[in-house]
């Protein structure tokens, strides 16, 4: 275990991505503790440029961009975490069952998975936003999670199918272990690193999904997120008026987060997946 960690730490990509992610998380967690003002409360006029009063200026309705960034980042991360966990959990559940049981169960579950892949998240969101009174952070995260698990399910299924024929699985069966016990104790431990990497990818894609949905006006109500900041900036014609401070910081932050998550995933992959290891 220590040798794995040592290998990881020796990789520049791993160190850079972890450093960026730690900074991002620290900003989202510590920021609002140090500055307790309400981000949805105007502090100045429309598109005030950066100043001592608001270091990143104000947005179209006079809110402090820096303050919004801190809080919006927190919201985006929370949505990403919840959606990522939900998607990974569903994906792992369906993938292991399909891969382990095979046969009809496999065909049914994979058929269902393929159906879900073809449904765009946006359609569900539009339908739900009509049905629901208000979209909260949690409901948005659940919707993203519930629609993005199929890729994880497919990958986990393939892994499970190859692990299922290993001799230690037969030994467990001969010891009378049940299907769930075998999946839990004989299959999942071998996939742990793989699942963790899948989660990192789901996290990155969920944060970007939130941004995309919010940009279309389907973001969470009564709160601020990175996506909603972009939506406000675009609606408020920040680009045309040259108020770069309103749209550049959230864009850069989103880029930094997803880039470092992908970087983290690729460095993990190189260490956990010996076939990719360079001599």
């Amino acid at each position: 275990m220590n040798s794995l960690l040592a290998q990881l730490l020796s990789k520049g990509r791993f160190r850079v991505s972890v450093a960026v992610l730690l900074l991002v998380v620290a900003f989202a967690v510590l920021g609002p503790m140090l500055d307790t003002r309400n981000p949805l409360f105007a502090v100045g006029g429309r598109y005030d440029p950066p100043s001592a009063n608001a270091i990143l200026g104000t947005d179209v309705i006079g809110n402090d961009v820096f303050l919004q960034l801190m809080h919006g980042l927190g919201t985006s991360l929370k949505i990403g975490l919840i959606a990522g966990l939900v998607a990974t959990a569903i994906g792992v559940f369906i993938g292991t069952l399909a891969g382990f049981l095979g046969g009809v169960v496999d065909e049914l579950l994979m058929g269902f998975t393929n159906v879900v892949i073809t449904i765009p998240t946006i359609v569900i969101l539009i339908l739900l936003s009509v049905a629901l009174e208000s979209r909260t952070l949690v409901s948005l995260a659940l919707i993203i999670g519930v629609t993005s698990w199929p890729w994880t399910a497919r990958a986990v299924r393939a892994q499970t199918a190859s692990l299922r024929v290993r001799e230690h699985v037969d030994i467990a069966r001969l010891s009378g272990a049940s299907v769930f016990s075998i999946i839990l104790w004989e299959i999942l431990p071998y996939m742990f690193s793989y699942i963790f990497m899948a989660f990192v990818l789901q996290l990155a894609s969920a944060i970007l999904s939130e941004a995309a949905l919010s940009l279309l006006g389907l973001g969470p109500d009564n709160t601020i997120s990175l996506g909603k900041m972009l939506q406000l900036a675009i609606q408020g014609e920040a680009i045309r008026t040259g108020a770069y401070w309103a749209f550049l910081p959230p864009t850069l932050l989103l880029t930094a987060i997803s880039f470092s998550l992908l970087l983290l995933q690729s460095s993990l992959d190189e260490v956990f997946n010996p076939r990719l290891r360079r001599a």
């Binding site: 030994i171 001969l174 004989e186």
Partner: peptide, 15 residues
């Protein structure tokens, strides 16, 4: 009961 071919693969390496 059974004994299999590969005594390494027959073990769950985590236990």
């Amino acid at each position: 009961q059974a004994v299999f071919q590969d005594p390494y693969a027959a073990f769950n390496q985590f236990y």
